[in-house]
């Protein structure tokens, strides 16, 4: 039996029920989110398993992973701290904010801290331009917004993650 269906059968059925029965392919994006929850990124095995559920080739599933930025095909930190430094946020200090956070954590944008807790990324506009500096946190649990941030408030957040029990 398909390992994803075995583990998340009911959830997968609920997802498939949203779309016409002859248009199962529409479920590829929600199913990728389900798969990504397991390890924080999509594995080669997932591509085949999702392809099997939707009757499409694994490479077609891989093309979706490659096209959309919220899917990852390599492991990252437990938390991905994604700072918006697009134009409106940059006009309100987002570049300096990102630099401050990176300096403190000893990483460059795109890199993961040595303890594997956080990957810092610079991302495109997140529709929160009036509350800059801001970032979103992507983890296995989903995505959450953090607005009107300072370097200090961000460091406090990361310190909190570092104290968590390893899962």
């Amino acid at each position: 039996m398909n390992p994803l269906r075995e583990r998340y059968g009911q959830e997968i059925d609920e997802i498939l029920a949203k779309y016409p029965t002859d248009q199962k392919r529409s479920a590829v994006m929600p199913l990728l989110y389900v798969a990504q929850r397991e390890h924080g990124y999509v594995t080669r095995e997932h591509l085949g398993q999702i392809g099997e559920l939707l009757s499409i080739a694994p490479t077609e599933v891989a093309s979706i992973v490659g096209f959309y930025t919220l899917y990852h095909d390599t492991p990252g930190g437990k938390y991905r701290l994604q700072v918006c430094n697009d134009l409106p946020c940059a006009l309100r200090g987002a570049d300096q904010f990102l630099e401050g956070v990176c300096d403190h954590l000893g990483v460059k944008p795109g890199e993961t801290t040595e303890d594997g807790v956080v990957t810092v990324e610079a991302v495109m506009c997140l529709a929160a331009c009036d509350k800059a500096p801001m970032f979103q946190v992507q983890s296995r649990e989903g995505i959450s917004y953090h607005e009107n941030q300072t370097v200090q408030s961000t460091i406090d957040l990361v310190d909190g993650w570092r104290k968590e029990e390893p899962k």
Binding site: R25, A27, I56, I64, F67
Partner: peptide
């Protein structure tokens, strides 16, 4: 009414790219 989440692609705000994406294809 159903919700459907994209996954980070500005182009999907263009209506035909959005439809492609909703069909499970590249936006």
């Amino acid at each position: 009414i159903y919700t459907h989440l994209g996954a980070g692609a500005y182009i999907c705000g263009e209506e035909t790219a959005l439809l492609e994406s909703l069909e499970g294809k590249l936006g």
